[in-house]
Design a protein around this nucleic acid. Structure first.
Lengths: 145, 145
DNA sequence: GAGGCTATGTCAGAATACTGACATGGGTCA
DNA sequence: TGACCCATGTCAGTATTCTGACATAGCCTC
């Protein structure tokens, strides 16, 4: 292989995937008892913090295609957790909002997910958390170009 | 919401997911012209560095279920990129190995993926890369418990 | 105002991964 | 030795996500 290879033991990309996979698994474990998936939760959390997001914007925020988010929103609307106007006020964009039921449902999930994030950074100093955040943001910026 | 909420702007978990998603997208872009998926590539890369891994071990290394890896290995065997013995020498474990064709196929992909990893860490010092790696490993360890 | 570009919502089909289940081999421990 | 537990390989069915496609609305330029 030579030194052109990617050593899994020291690859930053592999470590990133490992961490992300671990986070995903941990989140699935705490969300499953609540009957929610990660995409499910992500959608509600996004709508809570940024009410009025469109389906496409939600898709970008949850890292799925807008087609997938479309299907999910239909479920959430049917279950009464999300509400959207029947017609677009401007263009074709349909701003979505959480209902009271949606807010209640989210509250449980947020507590559970918060616990996971706390566990993930256990033993890290504030400076280390800040470093990790800054370095990850740098990688995101680099990859977007 | 109060301060119990998870602020997407400052959440380490969200930044981790963003970075991971960006890496995945970038890898898909460079692997698509080669007709490979990420799981596909991961399997070949693992076998290259650790010849003789079983299907279940490959699954863990590529972060998918052993059932998914099983299907993928059948494809790779049919295409002549991977070879496995017909019978297990011990137990039920079937050690897999890359064929010459598999090695050739991997070489192209490795170069492409390596380019992505270089781009991801552009502008970072060696110390920063080491910090990022160490912090990610800490998070992995924390989540595994 | 017309044409081109981009973004959005939506539908349909394909690819991918997952859950559930079963039989089997190895190891442990009483 | 036999019971028990765990890991593996494998098959089948389900679920989720993605790719492809189309019509439409807004924006920009000429």
């Amino acid at each position: 292989m030579g030194q052109d290879a990617i050593d899994l033991e020291t690859s930053l990309g592999y470590a990133l995937k490992e961490a992300s996979s671990g986070l995903r698994t941990a989140m699935e474990e705490v969300l499953r008892p609540l009957g929610m998936t990660i995409t499910h939760y992500s959608c509600l959390e996004l709508l809570s913090q940024r009410p009025g997001l469109s389906s496409s914007e939600l898709a970008r925020g949850a890292f799925v295609t807008r087609q997938s988010m479309h299907v999910l929103l239909q479920h959430l609307e049917r279950e009464g957790h999300v509400a959207r106007p029947d017609e677009a006020r401007v263009g074709k964009v349909l701003p979505a909002r959480l209902t009271a039921r949606g807010h209640a449902r989210l509250a449980q999930a947020t507590a559970a997910v918060r616990g996971v994030e706390v566990r993930m950074t256990a033993g890290m100093t504030d400076a280390e958390r800040a470093d990790a955040f800054r370095l990850l943001r740098t990688m995101v910026r680099n990859l977007q170009q």
